[in-house]
Design a binder for these strands. Structure first.
Lengths: 345, 345
DNA sequence: GTGAAAGCGCTAACAC
DNA sequence: GTGTTAGCGCTTTCAC
């Protein structure tokens, strides 16, 4: 007491020792009521709980982790945090994690550059982690995944299936194939494809599209590339408009589809009268678009939840499932229709 | 050595002691090269660095925090993580934090319910934190802010200005006033307003709108409320369409504006010919919308960066600025124009 | 059921 | 400059 400052200055946070003293029990007893690791007599438990409440005591995660070697935090490694699919997936992970008492840390890796990836992983691993979820939506995600030490539970979210790797996916290839089948079924001779930046050489959406075309013996037009920026679709739309044989376009995501439609509109073409356009994701704005967009509903938040569950069972050893897959659902709206020769109607 | 498992089993992570042994120096010397807290002779420093590299050693943040009482992680408390403004703000915080070697944790508080807020804050404070950034965009944010102990550096992002509180803001009231002035200047007799859920009784966008109207002696129509869901604007748009005196609408954000435009379109009204509509935020899709949307560019990522900077200078005591404000910029596009009597033209 | 003792991986304080 | 010592706030033996 003699060394305490006379005036002001908030006292430091109470420690488990303070709680023990106040409750008149030993430190390990407090620990036992905190962790539930062993039985404590009702009388002491009550004393301890009262002391905790009065002191507003909160255990230090750092001290806990240090001695128990068990952490209650997971890291999410992502190439981006604010794009629609990314943000929703992270939201799902966070919700599932919070429900289980886990805290989530975010690490963003903007490029697949080896130095950057190494730095990011090193910084992340400095924290005591129970596990890691990596958004394998893009090259940074793929690169990060490769750098994670194998002794830590890891789950990859989406991306193409890999054996031996814990993974929660959205079956984009199946959904893209189904969507392309639908477009072809409307009577289009073929379907053009605008790709968003793929995570590696093969991309599920592109694969499914190609599969449907091959199955139908339809010509496979060259793939066109857009960036993640919605406006990058505009230029592609103008190019597509210049080719009169184009009657149907499948875009890698809804935002690019919106850009493409604007490019088409700038060239004087109407959707779906002149060209049918379909997106992917069912972005919240897709239904409000003019015309309302035909797309594929991807439940990213659910992907995040499923990913966390896979991770959790690996962390606490309650299971050994490695894979969880869901098939996204087609959403039929008005941006795709049967073809009509351009200029007619 | 005798107790080591004979086969398999990854060895535990190397500790600072392992590094010291390998380099043939004492533990504190290793610590000194790690932290740069004191000079180490070039020879020993080199030995240590070599040992670190060979062992792939990474210091334990938990142990560090425990003894130094200094943390390199900040928490972001937010009501949501995936809505546009929120996600971009968090992105900005993360970028600025990463650049300074800080790690970011996410805590989401979905409601202002006292129990939920308390639980979330308690869970967050369990971690050793250097500081906290709270997104004061909504009631959960406001509630959370109130519950944070005063001995921790805190910064509030946006929300209405409060004295004595560290705060980075976007001057929404000024921008909303300017936008409403512009709409009035186009010749509209008044401007209707659709509000997104406000963070408290007063909302900057609504305040600015009202101020402009009062200044111009224009009638102040009742405020209409939308939820955060873009589609909630549709119904409001239909209602607005039913009132022939409505010629200009200022929406709380771009997504609601998109919903309102759709509602207007469903009622057979054209934008901007029959009704002018302006949004707020300059969402990436606003420029692609049909018609391209007149709105206000809010740089949320920059808000996050400024917020982190304010927090950082409080953490390391390099400054005592409490406030950072930026004025969002009007973006004139095509969804707002001079009024014409409906049905004409 | 409960306490005493040890120790997690580090940094701070203090000798030399 | 560098090593020795102490100790951060907890959980985990191990006695009793």
């Amino acid at each position: 007491m003699s060394t305490k400052k006379a005036a002001g200055g908030n006292a430091r946070n109470p420690t488990i020792t303070d709680v023990a003293e106040r409750a008149g029990v030993s430190v390990p007893t407090v620990s036992r009521v905190l962790t539930g690791a062993a039985r404590v007599s009702p009388a002491k438990r009550e004393l301890v709980e009262a002391a905790i409440a009065e002191l507003h005591y909160r255990p230090s995660a750092a001290a806990r982790v240090l001695v128990s070697r068990k952490s209650q935090t997971i890291a999410v490694i992502a190439g981006n945090t604010s794009r629609y699919g990314y943000a929703e997936t992270i939201r799902g992970i966070e919700i599932a994690a919070r429900a289980e008492g886990y805290t989530v840390m975010i690490t963003v890796v903007e490029s697949a550059d080896e130095d950057e990836v190494d730095r990011a992983i090193a910084a992340t691993l400095t924290q005591a982690l129970a596990g890691i979820a990596v958004l394998k939506f893009d090259p940074p995600g793929v690169a990060a995944l490769r750098k994670i030490p194998s002794d830590l539970p890891v789950v990859a979210l989406s991306g193409t299936r890999e054996t031996g790797m814990r993974q929660a996916v959205l079956d984009e290839a199946a959904a893209a194939e189904e969507l392309t089948d639908y477009l072809l079924g409307l009577g289009h001779e073929t379907v053009h494809h605008v790709r968003v930046p793929p995570s590696r050489r093969v991309d599920g959406r592109t694969t499914g599209w190609k599969r449907a075309l091959a199955k139908a013996n339809a010509p496979i037009p060259p793939v066109r590339d857009a960036s993640w920026l919605p406006r990058s679709g505009v230029e592609v739309g103008r190019e597509l408009a210049a080719d009169p044989s184009v009657t149907a376009v499948f875009c890698g995501n809804d935002e690019i589809a919106m850009g493409v439609m604007r490019g088409l509109a700038e060239a004087g073409l109407r959707v779906p009268e002149d060209v049918s356009v379909a997106g992917f994701d069912d972005h919240p704005l897709a239904e409000l678009w003019n015309p309302p967009m035909t797309t594929v509903d991807q439940d990213f938040a659910d992907l995040g939840v499923r990913g966390f569950q896979l991770l959790l069972q690996a962390i606490d050893g309650t299971g050994d499932r490695l894979y969880s897959s869901e098939r996204p659902r087609l959403v039929f709206r008005e941006s795709a229709a049967a073809p009509r020769p351009r200029g007619v109607g």
